[in-house]
Amino acid sequence: MKSEVIITIENLTKRFPEGDSEFTALSKINLEFSRGEFAGVVGPSGSGKTTLLNIIGSLDKPTEGRVSVLSNDISKLSHKESAMLRNMHIGFIFQVYNLLPVYTVFENVEFALMLQKKSKSERTKSVMEALEWVGLQDIPNKKVTKLSGGEGQRVAIARAMVKKPELVIADEPTANLDAVNAHSILETMKNLNKEFNTTFLFSTHDEKVMSYLDRIIHLRDGKLESDEIIHHKITAK
């Protein structure tokens, strides 16, 4: 059975002004991502990884070409519609966990649902469920400033996953973690990917992350260098 395509990228070009001229960050990219993929965009610094994820995450718009995410044409979305798309359908996981420091573990995860205007009871149920997915169900009231790096990233995963998004964009999620924590986090994400059929898109150059990916897209100087499906990598860890 053919999986449903949720992201379509056609002839995507992104240019940024640089002094009097322009810098081309992405050039004529064509890609498709299906529901439930666990894919990564790999490449050296300046290759266009983050720009690509920015556009897919509706944080930026293409200069040329068309990007459709969950049937939304990114270039045609207003700021409010882009925010709504992120709010309802896309989860973000950052390199540094970017939690709200004055709030507890529970409240940080709950915030994503508050933006969706879910009721208190719904929020409580969903947050506790999400914390259980990442193994933090015992410390919901802990201040996030007291968490270890691994725990912090787990909260970030719970925050991204609590709203059960169709797409999670993870920008170098293991960059600040030791090997043990990195594997544990990746294992958690992989399990969530399988359980909820959520599409995960990584930006990375970490070998550990790559070993978990089902698909690796190589970018170089803003151009698509390769796009490989690597089933065997899952068992190689």
Binding site: H79, A83, L85, R86, F92, N98, L99
Partner: peptide, 16 residues
């Protein structure tokens, strides 16, 4: 600044 950035990324509109 960072907090507002996180909130924007999470899907909160600027007006909100």
């Amino acid at each position: 600044y960072k907090e507002f950035g996180i909130r924007l990324a999470l899907g909160e509109a600027k007006g909100q």
